[in-house]
């Protein structure tokens, strides 16, 4: 007579573990459901519509041979999604402080590009997809070994950056601001010696035609000034389109396309983060009441 087969006891925790794995798996599968129709609608139309300003070099140039960093990236993204890129040039973008007056609607475009700043205020209105480019206040300073007190700076105001913070800072330091209307004005002020330093946004400062003077291009000190990442703006709630574009951006970054485009527009070289900038500005004479 054979001995009875031993009873194989299942571990006590097995039933519970199976239940937990089952419910976790069910929830994970649910994450693959599309949360909206934005990608389907865009693919159905066969066109990725983008609202851009008339000109915001080097992001949007209006030149067909070198259309700008943002435009070239968007062309690649449209290719990734197998759709055509349609640019809707809107001269109102950036001309008015209040974006409501630009009258950009969902019917005109799925994306806003050409200098959208990644900030909490912008995120209140749009979902943002970072482009890898940073903007902010930058300055041209003479390349002196011994920094001299700055008494006057030429300033070219820029849309999107905090002009009030800049003017408040200069006033507090007792530095006189000389307003400029163009990059050429900035260069002329430096050459004529009416300004010790030129301040503009990071893109404009790179276009200042400085001739013989030895200079350095530096970021304004952080804090109080912040460097602002730029982004593409999508309408809030368009999650499926956002995911598809983010995947496309990841691919462009991985295969080096983003870096190549940035190099073409000189965006791979950023202003220096200079410690003596803070020293230069703190050397400014105190304001006497």
């Amino acid at each position: 007579m054979s001995s009875p087969r031993p009873i194989r006891k299942r571990p006590r925790w097995l039933a519970g573990a199976i239940n937990i794995i089952a419910v976790a798996g069910l929830l994970y599968l649910a994450t693959f459901l599309p949360p909206d129709t934005s990608l389907d609608v865009m693919r159905g139309g066969g066109t990725l519509r983008v609202c851009v300003p008339q000109s915001a070099p080097p992001l949007v140039t209006g030149d067909a041979r070198a259309p700008g960093y943002d435009i070239e990236v968007l062309q690649h993204l449209a290719g990734h999604l197998n759709v055509r890129l349609h640019l809707n040039y809107n001269p109102a973008i950036g001309q008015d402080f209040n974006p409501r007056n630009w009258r950009l609607t969902r019917a005109q475009c799925s994306i806003v590009a050409g200098g959208v700043i990644d900030s909490t205020a912008t995120r209140g209105f749009l979902q943002l997809l970072p482009t890898g480019i940073t903007s902010g206040w930058a300055a041209i300073v003479p390349d002196d070994t011994s920094p001299q007190p700055v008494k006057a700076v030429a300033v070219l105001p820029s849309q999107g950056l905090d002009r009030l913070a800049l003017s408040g800072f200069l006033r507090e330091k007792g530095i006189r601001a000389v307003p400029a209307r163009s990059p050429e004005n900035l260069a002329a002020a430096l050459e004529a010696g009416t300004a010790d330093m030129a301040i503009a946004d990071r893109f404009t400062i790179g276009a200042v035609p400085v001739g013989e003077i030895d200079i350095r291009v530096v970021w304004l000190p952080e804090p109080p000034f912040t460097r602002l990442p730029l982004a593409f703006g999508l309408w809030k709630g368009d999650l499926t389109l956002m995911r598809a574009l983010r995947d496309g951006m990841t691919e462009l970054e991985r295969d080096g396309t983003l870096r190549t485009i940035a190099e073409r527009y000189g965006l791979d070289i950023e202003p220096e983060a200079s410690d003596d900038m803070a020293v230069l500005l703190s050397l400014a004479p105190e304001v006497t009441p």
Binding site: D36, W102, R103, R106, F125, G233, G237
Partner: peptide, 12 residues
Amino acid sequence: NPYFRGEVYGEV
């Protein structure tokens, strides 16, 4: 989601 999504930039 459609009731809270953006329709006009600057208006939400």
